[in-house]
Amino acid sequence: MADKDESLQTCTLPLSRVKTIMKSSPDVSCISQEALFLAGKATELFIQSLAQVSLEKSTDKKSLQYRDLAEVVNSIDTLQFLQDIVPKKITAREFFEMLKQNEDEDEET
């Protein structure tokens, strides 16, 4: 029980980096220590949850691959905001075929 209480009171992410990211927003002028800690802890818990869900849906239960994360991000509606950050990998051939289709559609219009 003490370990669980202790883990709730500490943040494994570097709070200085979290603060830098938060300050990069033009809407943020100052950040209290409490807000900084809560943002860091929430981010940490989100990353843990994303990793756990990805591992559960993975075919290999011993390791987590990029494709597992990309699959979860693309299949769960609440994670759609991460699609640009964690896109599905495609081959160069698939990419060039997509470009060709877009060019063909542009020529038709």
Results as ranks from 00 to 15, higher is better:
Met1Cys: 09
Asp3Asn: 10
Asp3Arg: 05
Lys4Tyr: 03
Asp5Leu: 11
Glu6Pro: 08
Glu6Ala: 13
Glu6Gly: 10
Ser7Tyr: 13
Thr12Phe: 07
Pro14Ile: 10
Pro14Lys: 07
Pro14Tyr: 08
Arg17Ile: 03
Arg17His: 07
Val18Asp: 00
Val18Lys: 00
Lys19Val: 00
Met22Glu: 09
Met22Val: 04
Ser25Phe: 04
Pro26Arg: 15
Ser29Thr: 09
Cys30Trp: 09
Cys30His: 09
Cys30Lys: 04
Ile31Asn: 01
Ile31Leu: 02
Ile31Glu: 01
Ser32Lys: 03
Gln33Met: 04
Glu34Gln: 06
Ala35Ile: 00
Ala35Asn: 02
Ala35Leu: 03
Leu36Trp: 00
Leu36Arg: 00
Phe37Lys: 01
Leu38Ile: 03
Ala42Pro: 00
Ala42Val: 08
Thr43Ser: 08
Thr43Arg: 01
Thr43Leu: 05
Thr43His: 03
Glu44Tyr: 01
Leu45Glu: 12
Ile47Trp: 07
Ile47Tyr: 11
Ile47Leu: 09
Gln48Ala: 07
Gln48His: 15
Gln48Leu: 13
Ser49Trp: 10
Leu50Thr: 01
Gln52Leu: 11
Val53His: 04
Glu56Thr: 14
Glu56Gly: 12
Glu56Pro: 15
Lys57Glu: 14
Thr59Phe: 11
Thr59Trp: 06
Lys61Asp: 03
Lys62Arg: 06
Ser63Gly: 04
Tyr66Gly: 04
Asp68Lys: 13
Leu69Pro: 00
Ala70Lys: 03
Ala70Asn: 02
Ala70Ser: 05
Glu71Tyr: 06
Val72Ala: 01
Val73Trp: 00
Val73Cys: 02
Asn74Met: 04
Ser75His: 04
Ser75Ile: 06
Ile76Phe: 11
Asp77Leu: 03
Asp77Tyr: 04
Gln80Ser: 15
Leu82Ile: 07
Asp84Ala: 08
Asp84His: 06
Asp84Gln: 08
Ile85Lys: 15
Pro87Val: 07
Lys88Pro: 01
Ile90Tyr: 06
Thr91Glu: 06
Arg93Met: 08
Arg93Ile: 05
Phe96Gln: 05
Phe96Leu: 11
Phe96Asp: 06
Phe96Tyr: 11
Phe96Asn: 12
Phe96Trp: 14
Glu97Lys: 13
Met98Leu: 15
Leu99Asp: 15
Lys100Val: 14
Lys100Arg: 15
Gln101Trp: 11
Gln101Leu: 15
Glu103Val: 14
Asp104Ile: 14
Glu105Gln: 14
Asp106Ala: 10
Glu107Asp: 08
Thr109Cys: 12
Thr109Pro: 12
